[in-house]
Amino acid sequence: MPHVPTDLLDRIRALEREVALLRGRTQIRPALDQVLNGTVHIGEGGTLDVTSPGGAQLLGVGRFSTGRYGVAMAREDGSGVAVEVGGNSVDAGQMVRLYARGSYPASPIVMDDGYADGYLGRPWVPLPLTTGVDVSSPTERTTHFALMHVQHRILSTSINVYAPADTTIRVQLRLSGPNGYEDIGAPIVAVGGTSGQEISDAQRIKIDRAHGERWRLLVRASRTAGTGTGTVYPFGLWGVNTVAPSEA
Rank of each mutant, 00 (worst) to 15 (best):
residue 44 E to G: 05
residue 44 E to V: 01
residue 188 I to W: 08
residue 228 G to Y: 07
residue 148 M to N: 02
residue 160 N to L: 09
residue 223 R to E: 14
residue 115 Y to F: 15
residue 222 S to N: 14
residue 207 I to S: 03
residue 55 G to M: 06
residue 217 L to R: 11
residue 213 E to L: 05
residue 126 P to A: 08
residue 234 P to A: 13
residue 183 D to A: 14
residue 28 I to L: 08
residue 79 S to P: 05
residue 37 N to K: 11
residue 39 T to D: 10
residue 123 P to R: 00
residue 179 N to T: 11
residue 105 P to I: 00
residue 123 P to T: 01
residue 17 R to A: 15
residue 237 L to F: 14
residue 171 V to C: 13
residue 150 V to H: 00
residue 189 V to F: 04
residue 187 P to M: 02
residue 92 A to Y: 09
residue 230 G to Y: 02
residue 25 R to P: 00
residue 69 Y to G: 05
residue 100 A to E: 11
residue 190 A to H: 06
residue 23 R to G: 11
residue 78 G to P: 04
residue 122 R to Y: 08
residue 212 G to M: 01
residue 102 G to C: 01
residue 138 P to D: 07
residue 116 A to N: 02
residue 211 H to A: 11
residue 130 T to S: 10
residue 140 E to I: 09
residue 149 H to G: 12
residue 209 R to H: 13
residue 165 A to Y: 01
residue 38 G to D: 11
residue 76 E to A: 15
residue 69 Y to L: 10
residue 123 P to K: 01
residue 214 R to N: 03
residue 140 E to A: 15
residue 195 S to I: 12
residue 198 E to D: 06
residue 234 P to H: 02
residue 88 N to Q: 14
residue 155 L to M: 14
residue 11 R to P: 00
residue 90 V to E: 08
residue 118 G to D: 03
residue 207 I to A: 08
residue 189 V to I: 15
residue 201 D to A: 11
residue 248 A to N: 09
residue 43 G to Q: 06
residue 227 T to A: 14
residue 16 E to Y: 07
residue 66 T to S: 15
residue 193 G to E: 08
residue 65 S to Q: 09
residue 140 E to Q: 15
residue 127 L to F: 08
residue 121 G to R: 06
residue 175 L to R: 07
residue 84 E to D: 10
residue 136 S to W: 01
residue 194 T to C: 00
residue 129 L to T: 03
residue 44 E to P: 04
residue 45 G to P: 09
residue 97 R to G: 12
residue 176 S to F: 00
residue 122 R to C: 00
residue 190 A to Q: 02
residue 145 F to I: 02
residue 180 G to N: 11
residue 153 R to W: 00
residue 27 Q to F: 00
residue 115 Y to P: 11
residue 199 I to Y: 03
residue 98 L to P: 00
residue 164 P to R: 12
residue 20 A to R: 14
residue 174 R to I: 02
residue 97 R to D: 03
residue 39 T to F: 05
residue 75 R to G: 10
residue 155 L to N: 06
residue 41 H to R: 15
residue 48 L to G: 00
residue 109 I to G: 01
residue 171 V to T: 08
residue 243 V to Y: 02
residue 51 T to S: 12
residue 144 H to L: 05
residue 117 D to L: 11
residue 122 R to V: 04
residue 185 G to A: 13
residue 174 R to F: 10
residue 124 W to S: 13
residue 118 G to C: 08
residue 60 G to M: 12
